[in-house]
Amino acid sequence: MWLFALFVAVPIIEIALFIQVGGLIGLWPTLLIVVVTAILGTALVRQQGALAMSQLRQSFAELNDPAEPLAHGAMILLSGALLLTPGFFTDTVGFLLLIPAFRTFVLKELRKRVKVQSFVMGQQAGFTQTRPPYRQNPQDPGVIDGEWEELDADKPKNQGPSGWTRH
């Protein structure tokens, strides 16, 4: 329901702002502002997008959680869409989303409202996964069971007992 209200409210706000600003400064200056904000917004989105991509690559390279750089990238993408949409309200929200501190604030507020049930990263170097990486023990939720198999590049897989096992 809130999405429907948003789709109705935003155009009404934009039309009201166009009428007010156009009445104050005239038609051509109003249209010029809309075009200039779209051009300026595009340049800023490119810059911020490149920065977000480098942060995302860095998080992948360091095997860190990529959630925050992905969220920043998504907000920059939304910002670009808002800045290309003609209007003063959408431009204001779009420019706000280009400010890293504002994006961090929005992300912090979203984290308060969203609860992640599980998070799984892909295979890590040197380990293979035969089952899901972990499962929570229903008897003791503080215990997480996991399975892993270490791969040794120097030793063939079917070499026989390791000396630690008996047959």
Score class of each variant (00 low, 15 high):
1 M>E: 03
3 L>I: 04
4 F>C: 04
10 V>C: 02
14 E>M: 02
17 L>E: 01
17 L>T: 03
18 F>Q: 00
20 Q>P: 01
20 Q>H: 02
23 G>R: 07
30 T>F: 11
31 L>E: 04
32 L>I: 01
45 V>T: 07
46 R>A: 10
47 Q>I: 14
49 G>R: 07
50 A>V: 11
51 L>P: 01
52 A>I: 05
52 A>L: 04
53 M>W: 13
56 L>R: 07
57 R>K: 11
64 N>Y: 02
65 D>K: 06
65 D>P: 06
68 E>H: 06
72 H>I: 05
74 A>Q: 06
75 M>I: 12
78 L>P: 12
79 S>T: 09
79 S>W: 14
82 L>F: 15
88 F>E: 08
89 F>S: 07
90 T>G: 11
97 L>W: 07
99 I>R: 07
103 R>L: 00
103 R>W: 01
105 F>M: 15
110 L>M: 15
118 S>C: 01
118 S>I: 00
120 V>G: 03
125 A>G: 02
125 A>K: 05
125 A>I: 10
128 T>P: 03
132 P>R: 13
135 R>G: 02
140 D>H: 09
142 G>K: 06
144 I>A: 06
146 G>F: 11
147 E>I: 08
150 E>I: 15
152 D>F: 12
154 D>C: 05
154 D>H: 13
156 P>V: 11
166 R>A: 05
166 R>M: 09
